[in-house]
């Protein structure tokens, strides 16, 4: 009576879960579906470490109800690499020193992926704006933004558009 059976597409595969009405998507992903890439940081939508895509929009999974996801397309950081092969963006982030403790990284990868799916040539300001809901306490953001700029420059040079989803 107070639990909901919810079916949604998770990284391309249909999954059905039985969840209490107010369960967050983050709890469902981490504790029921064993996808621990989305991190539990502030639990109040402040830090962005739990960012996932629902129908291509970035949301904080820690404050979004799983029961609202029925029939929708959920993508997590696990779905953005190809069978463990990091995406262009992930590789650029490693190269540029965008990752120190790494806790915030999945959230940044997801938010930037959403940006690059919309915008093939974002400005530095667009990039900064797209990650304004993601907090990083190690890098000072500069390397993260540089990594995104590098991916954008590479994919424009290659004339292939963005291939962040690898």
């Amino acid at each position: 009576m107070t639990s909901n059976s919810v079916t949604f597409s998770l990284n391309g595969v249909d999954r059905t879960v039985d969840v209490p009405g107010a369960e967050t998507l983050l709890d469902t992903l981490r504790d029921r579906l064993n996808l621990r890439g989305s991190k539990e940081g502030c639990l109040e939508g402040e830090c962005g470490a739990c960012t996932v895509l629902v129908d291509d929009r970035p949301i904080d999974a820690c404050i979004y109800p799983t029961a609202a996801c029925g029939g929708r397309r959920v993508r997590t950081v696990e779905g953005l690499s190809d069978g463990g092969v990091p995406s262009l963006l992930q590789r650029a982030m490693v190269r540029s020193g965008s990752i120190q403790c790494g806790f915030c990284t999945p959230g940044f990868v997801v938010a930037v992926t959403a940006l690059l799916e919309r915008e093939s040539n974002p400005s530095r300001a667009d990039i900064a704006d797209a990650v304004n809901g993601n907090i990083c306490r190690c890098t000072g953001y500069a390397q993260i933004i540089e990594a995104v700029q590098a991916v954008v420059a590479d994919s424009l040079a290659a004339g292939t558009g963005q291939e962040v989803e690898a």
Binding site: G45, G48, G133, N134
Partner: peptide, 12 residues
């Protein structure tokens, strides 16, 4: 609207 929370807040 541009200054409400972050993108994740504004998106929904």
């Amino acid at each position: 609207a541009r200054q409400v929370g972050g993108w994740q807040t504004q998106a929904i």
